[in-house]
Design a protein around this nucleic acid. Structure first.
Length: 628
DNA sequence: ATCCTGGTTGACTTC
DNA sequence: AGAAGTCAACCAGGA
């Protein structure tokens, strides 16, 4: 019998410590082991991955590759520049592996990708071994132990986890690795069509990512930002398993911090260093095992005695939430990422709703502009020029560093959706997807649903103030001064509300509060006026949420899908929050370029034309009393 | 069915 | 100064 020849396919498990899948590969006692990465065009061109997260990924790959080489001089992380679906059938023939091993991934795209690869392996007679290692418990197991339903509360996750049993103990890193086998690539490379490239706006030079299957020098080197066409990253946050383990060791030394950690008590305004662990990006790329983290933390808590915090506020609670969102996604699949078709997502007639492909029911990544006003608000939110310094500081920090504190994310997410702009949570989720170094699809989607009160959370009358919330943590506005330098010299009294600053104070602070915050129009030495009266918007939004809740539609309701939901929001007051756009099933005029795959069906053009212009609708009162 | 409890992280006023 | 009450009243999950 021939000894096993194993391809180990690294994906979001860029580590050697506590990797159940890698261990399963080594348990085969293979003659050869190829540690590989395949550059998936879907990730490179179709997923929103800003330069900062790409850099973090490349860091993780480089570190892993070096760690592999330390265990075997002949080996490293071999990067192949082709998508797995087309690559593996060719690799199976050319390299003649007996096994393909990888860590299980329950992300929506990953599931279909892996199905295709498993099918190809079966056809080639290659055995496939997978192991769960990305979450505390296998997310499909959690779903199975929750009646096949998504976990919508932390209690449900904990109950399901309890039924499965204790979180698996960490597995030590391997002490040696087998040699890689020969790696002929004398087959034709399948080159992807990069257009449309969703990350184009981040790129400043020619994209040469797919020039040669084994890289420019034919040595399977890890790609560089240059090769991908990116300018240098802006974030100081760096990746890699070595760094992750160092950081974990450092954190664990402070027993009190670890054992008494309470997330809601950590400050969103603290930035140097941040108040939380900053381990999330390592979890995302699997550079740190979430199970290893869990057990290291639990050990500290167990020996700490009384006074230790507990879930959901504790550090353990944080990774439980992560598992909850993963299991919700595992149960709902593609519909989890959007309102339309999602039975667990409440329907709210937000501004700037997603366009959908009528064939698949899935969002296209583009949105309807039902309100020019809302579009302008959205742009200002994204750019960090809303005129609310707390919001702008956080959005600028997010863009530059790829990270903001969890409560900062709450604040800006609430502001964009139910607590200010009344813009679709899907718009916000897309921006976070692009900008976060720790973007985790399930957690991002789940948290946006939470904050916009369409799922997981429902207390929509608890609205974050862009003024008071920041002041609670950072009276003098240090975070604002760091990220909104125009306001650096503004007195603490006005730092959160510069529009209240009298002219002499503006002069003294060297800034004029003027302009509408839209791109190209903001003059040097100025900071924009606030884009709306927050308390007025708060009242309008709470009233609109109350109404949407009472209508009670969910994403899978027929009325949501066919556009007839409009007839259920008849009050003129809601004109302010009425989508004014053509139905997805009657797409015409304005989207000629992708018109070829949007079949004209039943010709319905469901958009009632509502006369009310968004700004024309006034709140009934400055206070909360807008709803009747 | 119906009630009850708990829910990571609001703001503001009153005591 | 910190806790409690008010604002208005939400849901999921379990008994």
């Amino acid at each position: 019998m021939t000894k096993p020849r194993v391809i180990y396919w690294f994906r979001t498990d860029l580590r050697l410590h506590d990797s159940p899948a890698l261990q399963a590969a080594l348990d085969l006692e293979p003659e050869v082991l190829w540690p590989i990465w395949t550059w998936d065009p879907h990730y490179v061109y179709k997923a929103r991955v800003g330069v900062n997260r790409f850099q973090f990924l490349l860091d993780c790959q480089n570190d892993l590759s070096q760690s592999i080489t330390k265990l075997n001089k002949k080996s490293k992380l071999f990067v192949l520049r082709e998508g797995p679906q087309t690559l593996f059938p060719k690799l199976f023939k050319a390299w003649k592996p007996t096994h393909l091993v990888f860590e299980k991934d329950t992300d929506t795209y990953a599931r279909t990708r892996d199905e295709a690869v498993v099918k190809a392996a079966k056809e080639a007679g290659v055995k496939v071994i997978t192991r769960s290692g990305r979450t505390l418990w296998d997310s499909d197991d959690i779903v199975a132990h929750h009646d096949g339903k998504p976990t919508m509360t932390i209690a449900a996750l904990q109950a399901a986890g309890k039924k499965i049993g204790p979180v698996a103990k960490p597995i030590p890193a391997p002490k040696s690795l087998p040699d890689p086998g020969d790696m002929p690539v004398d087959f034709e490379q399948h080159r992807p069509d990069p257009k449309p490239d969703i990350n184009e706006s981040h790129k400043t030079r020619e994209d040469t990512a797919y020039k040669h299957i084994a890289g420019p020098n034919g040595d399977f080197a890890i790609e560089t930002l240059e090769e991908l066409g990116f300018a240098p990253a802006t974030t100081p946050i760096r990746g890699g398993e070595t760094l992750a383990l160092q950081r974990l060791d450092e954190l664990i030394k402070d027993k009190t911090y670890i054992a008494t950690f309470k997330k809601p008590k950590t400050s969103p305004a603290q930035f140097d260093p941040p108040a939380t662990t900053l381990l999330s990006p390592f979890f995302h790329f699997g550079a740190l095992s979430v199970r290893l983290f869990y057990h290291r933390v639990q050990e500290v808590i167990d020996s700490f005695g009384p006074g230790a915090s507990s879930p959901p506020e504790s550090l353990i609670g944080q990774v439980l939430f992560r598992d909850m969102y993963f299991a919700a996604q595992a149960a709902l699949g593609a519909s989890f990422a959007q309102t339309a078709t999602n039975p667990y997502c409440r329907f709210v007639p937000w501004h700037l709703p997603s366009k959908r492909d009528p064939h698949t029911g899935l969002t296209t990544g583009d949105h309807h502009i039902d309100s020019d006003q809302a579009e302008a608000w959205f742009r200002r939110w994204k750019a960090g020029t809303t005129g609310f310094p707390w919001i702008d500081a956080l959005m600028r920090q997010l863009r530059h560093d790829g990270w903001i504190h969890h409560l900062g994310r709450h604040s800006v997410a609430c502001f964009l959706t139910r607590g200010g702009c009344y813009v679709d949570w899907e718009r916000g989720a897309e921006v976070f997807e692009e900008l976060l170094v720790d973007h985790e699809p399930a957690c991002n989607i789940g948290n946006w649903q939470w904050l916009s009160c369409v799922a997981f959370f429902a207390q929509y009358y608890r609205v974050y103030s862009p003024v008071s919330f920041g002041q609670k943590w950072d009276r003098d506005g240090a975070l604002i001064r760091r990220w909104v330098p125009e306001l650096r010299n503004v007195k603490p009294k006005y730092i959160y509300e510069p529009w209240k600053m009298p002219l002499p104070d503006q002069k003294a602070a060297g800034v004029r509060i003027t302009g509408d915050g839209l791109e190209d129009e903001q003059d040097e030495g100025t900071y924009p006026k606030p884009m709306f009266d927050f308390s007025e918007r708060r009242g309008i939004c709470i009233g609109a949420m109350k109404n949407a809740y009472s209508v009670g539609l969910h994403g899978n309701d027929e009325k949501v899908l066919d556009g007839s939901w409009r007839s259920l929001f008849p009050s003129p007051d809601e004109a302010e929050v009425m989508g004014e756009y053509e139905s997805d099933f009657g797409e015409n005029a304005d989207n000629n370029e992708d018109g070829d795959h949007i079949e004209k069906q039943n010709g319905e053009s469901a958009g009632h034309k509502r006369g009310a212009e968004t700004m024309g609708v006034k709140a009934k009162s400055k206070k909360l009393k807008t709803q009747e």
